[in-house]
Write a protein that binds this DNA or RNA. Structure first.
Lengths: 244, 244
DNA sequence: CTTCATTGTGTATCAAATACACAATGAAGC
DNA sequence: GCTTCATTGTGTATTTGATACACAATGAAG
């Protein structure tokens, strides 16, 4: 961590608050993906610091908050359209933990007065996103060194209250499991029933009966079985399904 | 509306933003009550203006948002403890409609520069409250002339996006009807089954079968039938129930 | 003491959730 | 080619909950 050179433009960006943004408000996104039979969450690692956070950002003064969340995620994932819903707003006065922020700035060799906008309290609007893992191209930005997927079961130490935000998002997702077509967003266009079941089991954290699950899903009008089967694997080839 | 005398203290309050408050963030509360077989919503009428709004306010810099909502409602209802839950955050850039604000200030004879904080965009966190109608003492404050109950079915013209906020709150309440003990908060401590049923029918906007409703409610472990009956009314005296 | 609107209760039926078993498939190994 | 075996596809019995519906009990009003 010694001998860091922080580009001058970072310092300017950080020292002078950009007036285009709504004050004391931020957005944090919990982006869920599904791959290798695991739920994945997109995380960002900050430059000059070991710690991670959720992808997030600020809101332009003339921008609806949903649109801000879309813009932030387009930068991070490359995706224009994704399942994205506000799920809760986090407003504990100590949630942004200026200690974390201080540590980050120290690491970057930046020293700011106590009244700098970065030390202000932020109220953050939480957004839940579901994406097709394979379509995402995680992108870093000026201030982040890594942007990538982590297994939901192996989330590293996060800054601020982001662990809590992920837990709340997961709770929301579980509640919505049978009312929203989550498979439509998390799986590829064509998928098998065992794949869909594994997704549900992973989100719920409990095994489901194979036959009853198929029955329940088949009764949903939005799921259609195709004529095709998925060949290639060992054993009997399962049918492919798709969301209409 | 002519010849209005706005106290000097109002002007000071409005012209100089109070730095104790979080910027560009506000709280709006949808307070539901139940009386005379009607759902009621608490509304505030502003001085020098015909229009109404939801009771709301700002967040102290050192205050959790839930606590801010509690404080705001304590001032308006006199109640310390009530059912209160965040249900959505409203962040359309035009939601605060500066035209409404301008009209209000004009009516008060106050003229502010365009960059005054009151013309800033506000992101508002919506809170849903359930209260026992009889225990509420609606209070006005410096800027409001009336604070009182309105039938949900006869809401007057509201400023900003508050009609939309009420609709969203009602949708949330309907979804929670069978998972949250709403009767516990909306009805007096002891109530009859017909009263509880009428509450549910009013919230849902549809009639329910008397016998099936009683069966369903009786299966909830949180509702207990008392030995007492409610006498006084004509016809057979119904049993009293209570939430444990 | 009759009337009548209202309350309390029970039962038949239908739909959904759950528990559970056996036949069909298809790659792998002999 | 035939057997093996993990996996997929399907069906049925049972339980639970939701819905539809009917009749007896109550208690004030007349």
């Amino acid at each position: 961590m010694e001998n860091i050179k922080v580009p001058e433009e970072f310092k300017v960006l950080i020292s002078n608050r950009d007036k285009r943004y709504v004050r004391q408000c931020s957005i944090d996104c919990v982006v869920f993906g599904f791959a290798q039979n695991q739920m994945k969450v997109l995380l960002v690692q900050w430059k000059y610091l070991d710690k991670w956070t959720l992808p997030g950002g600020f809101i332009h003064q003339d921008e609806p908050i949903d649109q801000a969340a879309n813009r932030i995620l387009k930068e991070r994932t490359g995706l224009e359209k994704l399942y994205l819903k506000q799920f809760a707003t986090f407003g504990d006065p100590h949630r942004s933990r200026s200690k974390d922020m201080q540590q980050m700035l120290d690491a970057m060799g930046i020293f700011l007065p106590e009244d700098n906008w970065l030390f202000e309290r932020f109220i953050s609007i939480g957004y839940l996103a579901l994406v097709n893992f394979d379509r995402v191209t995680p992108n870093t930005d000026l201030l982040s060194s890594v942007c990538g997927w982590h297994n939901l079961s192996e989330i590293p130490d996060l800054m601020f209250d982001h662990t809590h935000i992920i837990q709340t998002a997961l709770g929301t997702l579980r509640k919505q499991l049978y009312t929203e077509p989550v498979g439509k967003y998390l799986l590829p266009e064509k998928f098998t029933m065992p794949e869909l079941q594994k997704l549900y089991e992973t989100i719920l954290g409990e095994p489901l009966d194979r036959r009853n699950f198929a029955k329940k899903i088949s009764s949903m009008s939005s799921v259609k079985r195709l004529k095709e089967r998925k060949s290639g694997g060992a054993h009997r080839a399962p049918y492919l399904y798709t969301f209409i």
